[in-house]
Design a binder for these strands. Structure first.
Lengths: 243, 243
DNA sequence: TTGGCATTTTGATCTGCGTCAAGGCTGCAG
DNA sequence: CTGCAGCCTTGACGCAGATCAAAATGCCAA
């Protein structure tokens, strides 16, 4: 399958109003003339290459970012030196809000593939939110969702087995692809086994073994990072969590 | 030690402006005449008794709450039936923001002791935030802090040993007491071992054993839920995280 | 005071996943 | 083509913390 940016090139998406992702990104439920105002503050940068950093932990917070294509990984390093992957961001998703509280990003964001993002300067977003109640509400909801997602992840990591965690992760990826009208069953994982393991609190070997078992039980087919979920309900049964 | 509400009775704290907690609660950095507007929408209910529910997972979201005295525990039950304690809220802290995204609370909040809270109806808070840029900003920061706190907790639970987790937890409680001008070393734990274990992804037996080891190593003294941190630096060394 | 229930502690044993080690696969550079 | 580096898989073994069990302690009500 072609990457999304090739099926719907960047240069055709010159504004928020005609962006294919606008139903899952910021402008949700904002009136047309309001989208224009939002559009004026959004900056569309040049594509990031694999490995490029979008922002770094500890650097000054200025903007939040919406992913347009590709995939971004966010991770933070604790004072004790532990590295923790805090999230993967796919097209239509917003990252960077963790920087608001301390005026510095609390994580580093790196492109996992060639990616494109929209930069939204936060001060301007704040001003606009004062004028557009729906935008303010949308932003409160967005942050609240990040909180509930983090709490679900905490439950997953602290209460579920390795198989349940990996199954939930695959189903989460699947659901997020579905939201973008892409295949529910067949997709590419943009991150390494290392990243998956770190995110889920598992070692790379355990992730590999669990995927091997899923394959043996005919739940999935895997070839490197290409994934096919052969038995969605079977995987849901393993995850014991609704996705 | 007397509970705070007895040293500083409720009926003397009739408004936000003279509330002893206002430096760590909402009105931070808000001008005096703005505090009055905020004060008008805040509702001060009667005290909650131990075990009383402030709100329930799945019920309609209407308000966020500021703890005035006592202690509140928030927990959620996943579709698979796992119970996860998502946080403990002490005087000056805000809870309930997890309900914004889906218009329903994603957790249940229960009083661990006799407690008093201020109720802040969210629709009115939203309206006021449109008029008071500082309040909007404060609220964005508050939610962003909740996100970064959750991510730190995730790192703690997924990357650290039982001893590191318990030590970090005790230091976190200590730091939050210090913020309220209370003893850094001596305080009462309002929650059970069960709750601590659940919060940290450990069993009650492990929590008990770790506390026993800390006691043996003269890091702490414990008598039930009364705690004295005898060696703060020693405990910090065990936690390997700055608190 | 006594009884009963919830909470905590302590001990013995078990196990899922981490750790260590080795080998395979893929893609790129020369 | 060959060699090398990154990434992934597979196997053998050990251990931190879970589980199972039971006793100790605290707390409140009658």
């Amino acid at each position: 399958m072609l990457p999304e940016e090739q099926r719907c090139p960047h240069n055709e998406q010159v504004n928020c109003a005609n962006c294919r992702l606008n139903s899952i990104c910021l402008p949700l439920a904002i009136a047309d003339d309001d989208i224009i105002k939002l559009d004026e503050i959004v900056q569309r940068g040049k594509p990031l290459h694999k490995g490029d950093k979008l922002y770094r932990q500890g650097s000054d917070f200025r903007s939040v970012y919406a992913v347009r294509s590709g995939a971004i990984k966010a991770y933070s390093v604790s004072p004790s030196g532990e590295e923790q992957v805090t999230g993967f961001y796919l097209p239509g998703e917003i990252l960077g809000v963790d920087g608001i509280s301390s005026h510095r990003y609390s994580s580093t964001a790196v492109a996992l593939d060639t990616s494109a993002v929209c930069e939204i300067p936060f001060e301007q977003l704040e001003s606009l939110s004062l004028q557009l109640p729906k935008l303010q509400r949308h932003f409160f909801q967005l942050m609240s969702r990040e909180i509930t997602d983090d709490q679900k992840l905490l439950t997953l990591v602290s209460k579920n087995s390795a198989e349940e965690r990996v199954a939930s992760f695959l189903l989460s990826m699947s659901a997020r692809h579905t939201r973008r009208q892409l295949s529910e069953q067949r997709f590419h994982l943009p991150m390494s086994r290392q990243d998956i393991g770190n995110f889920l609190g598992l070692t790379i070997e355990t992730v590999s073994r669990v995927l091997g078992r899923f394959k043996k039980n005919l739940l999935i087919e895997v070839d490197g990072r290409d994934l096919f979920i052969a038995d969605l309900d079977g995987l849901r049964a393993v995850a014991r969590v609704n996705h």
